[in-house]
């Protein structure tokens, strides 16, 4: 069995893949079940009053006060282009500890509902199938065939970094550059 597995998976994939098995927090977005590494999850909080931040991408829901610290909150549905739904009593914010741009940051992501914490064995995880160019699967760690159904395992840092919040920061930087330029013109 072990030998077969080694044959089935090219060694190049194995060498740069880390051990993916472990505990995952699973949550739902629509009918789909996702998972993030439990070690990256700081806490789960109910939906708080979110302050919208103007001139940010639509997947940035805004900012909330987490015990005196202000953290940004992202809408994963919008981020994945899944279309908006109204918040329900199950909607909650998963606060993740992520390293973005080399800095540790707390970021909240809004999910439809949190399901459970499951132990997923490495052997249960399969590579992400190719869905064509229309679907960017870069931030999917793999697909887990768990007894309770298939879970899509997210590399949450990649979600936040890849074309995500980082882009917001870059946009802001460009904006600033333009702003100061126009200031200069005025002067």
């Amino acid at each position: 069995m072990g030998v077969e597995a080694a044959v089935a998976v090219p060694s190049s994939v194995l060498s740069d893949e880390v051990e993916r098995g472990g505990k995952y927090l699973t949550f739902r977005l629509g009918a789909e079940e996702y998972g993030v590494e439990i070690l990256k999850v700081r806490e789960i909080i109910g939906l708080l009053a979110i302050t919208a931040v103007p001139r940010t991408p639509d997947f940035v829901r805004g900012v909330v006060n987490l015990r005196g610290k202000i953290i940004p909150v992202l809408d994963l549905r919008m981020k994945f282009g899944m279309g908006q739904v109204d918040d329900t009593e199950f909607t909650c914010i998963v606060v993740v500890d992520a390293e973005v741009n080399g800095r540790a940051a707390h970021i909240g992501v809004i999910v439809d509902t949190v399901s459970e914490v499951v132990q997923i064995a490495d052997a249960e995880i399969e590579e992400t199938p190719y869905f064509g160019e229309a679907l960017d699967t870069g931030f999917i760690l793999g697909m887990a065939k768990h007894r309770s159904g298939v879970k899509i395992l997210l590399n949450i840092e990649a979600v936040l970094a890849e074309s995500g919040v980082v882009e917001v920061a870059t946009m802001a930087a460009q904006e600033l550059a333009r702003v100061s330029e126009s200031e200069e013109k005025e002067a």
């Binding site: 001139r55 940004p72 920061a169 702003v179």
Partner: peptide
């Protein structure tokens, strides 16, 4: 307070 490193600068 800062809006968090992740959000960077927001114009205005």
């Amino acid at each position: 307070k800062s809006l968090g490193d992740a959000l960077g600068e927001v114009a205005g």
